[in-house]
C-alpha cells in the first residue's frame, strides 16, 4: 500500500488528459511537474486553483494544457498580470469559472467530508454568483424568516499536485503550516507529491512535523525533485527568484501578444536560466 517513489516523468504520466487537477497558490507550486506536463503535451486539464494561482497556472495555459480554469484569481503578483491567462480568457481558448477564495476552500472542505455541498456567507448579489449556475442559494432552513445563503458543491479533484520541502519513503509529505494543502489532498481522489528530498525515516515519528503531514493513504506516488518549485519559493529551502519570474512575465507577455515564441518556456527551464547568469 506504500505509494511508490518514481521519477518525475512517470509521475507526470499519472495525470491523464482531461483530469480535474487541483493546485494551491504559491509557494509550494510544483513547477518541475508543470514543465513535465508541458513536455508531455498534456491536454484539456480542468484546473482548480486553491484559491488563486500564478506562474504554474499561467504556464500550463500558455502551453495549451488547460481547457477549463476555476479560480479566484490568477496573477503574477508584484510582477504583474498573468499574460496567458488574460489572453486565453479573452479569446475563449479557456473556459473561465470565476470563484472567490473562501468558496474554493468551502468546496474542497465539502469534498473532504464526503458531503454534497457546504454553505458559505456573502457572495449574494455579485456577478461571480450570477455566472456560477452550479452555485445555489437557499433559505437557511434553521431560520424562520428567510436568510438566503449560498451553497457550494463539493469539489473532488481527480488529482491534487503539490511540491514540498520534505517527504519520506513511506509517502508522508510535510506541508508546514499550510493546512489547506491537507484539505486539498483529502478532497482529491489522489495526490501526487514532488519533494526537495525524500528521507528514509518516518516523518510521523517527528513530533514537530507529525501534525502537518499529507499521509500515505492520500498519496498516489512521489518523486524527488530538487529545485522543484523554482522559480517560485519552497520554504524553508529557497525564496522566489525575482529575476527569473520577471523574465517569465516579460517573455510570456510578448508571446501572449504575438501568439508565438517559446522564449517564455526557455526562461522557465533551470539549465537555461543558469546559462543566462
Amino acid at each position: 500500500m506504500r505509494p511508490p517513489v518514481i521519477d518525475l516523468a512517470d509521475l507526470a504520466a499519472r495525470i491523464p488528459d482531461g483530469a480535474l487537477l487541483s493546485v494551491a497558490k504559491e509557494p509550494n507550486a510544483p513547477m518541475a511537474l508543470a514543465r513535465e506536463l508541458i513536455r508531455r503535451g498534456t491536454k484539456n486539464l480542468h484546473l482548480v486553483t486553491l484559491p488563486t494561482a500564478g506562474v504554474f497556472a499561467d504556464a500550463l495555459i500558455g502551453a495549451g494544457c488547460v481547457k477549463i480554469v476555476e479560480t479566484s484569481g490568477i496573477s503574477l503578483g508584484e510582477f504583474g498580470p498573468a499574460p496567458f491567462f488574460a489572453e486565453a480568457v479573452k479569446s475563449g481558448a479557456v473556459e473561465i469559472r470565476d470563484a472567490t477564495c473562501p468558496a474554493v476552500y468551502t468546496g474542497l472542505q465539502a469534498g473532504e467530508k464526503g458531503i454534497p455541498f457546504m454553505p458559505i456567507r456573502g457572495i449574494i448579489g455579485s456577478d461571480v454568483l450570477a455566472n456560477r449556475p452550479d452555485w445555489k442559494v437557499i433559505d437557511n432552513p434553521f431560520e424562520a424568516s428567510g436568510d438566503p445563503i449560498v451553497l457550494i458543491p463539493a469539489i473532488r479533484p481527480d488529482v491534487a499536485v503539490v511540491h514540498v520541502s520534505v517527504a519520506d519513503r513511506f509517502g508522508n509529505a510535510w506541508i508546514g503550516d499550510r493546512h489547506e494543502l491537507k484539505t486539498m489532498a483529502h478532497a482529491a481522489h489522489r495526490t501526487i507529491v514532488t519533494a526537495e528530498r525524500i528521507v528514509d525515516h518516518d516523518l510521523r515519528e517527528d513530533e514537530a512535523k507529525s501534525a502537518n503531514l499529507i499521509t500515505p493513504i492520500y498519496v498516489d506516488a512521489l518523486a524527488e525533485a530538487p529545485g522543484g518549485s523554482w522559480p517560485l519559493a519552497c520554504p524553508p529551502d529557497y525564496a522566489l527568484d525575482p529575476g527569473a519570474v520577471r523574465a517569465y512575465a516579460s517573455a510570456a507577455r510578448q508571446s501572449a501578444r504575438s501568439g508565438g515564441g517559446e522564449e517564455w518556456l526557455a526562461v522557465l527551464t533551470p539549465s537555461h536560466a543558469e546559462a543566462a547568469e
Partner: peptide
Amino acid sequence: TGAGDYPRGDVRWSGAFGSAFLYFQ
C-alpha cells in the same frame, strides 16, 4: 474581474480573490 462584456471583455484582470466574501463580513 475585467472591463467590457464578461467573460470575453476588453481587459481581463486577475479575479475577485476574497472580495465577494470579505466585503460582506
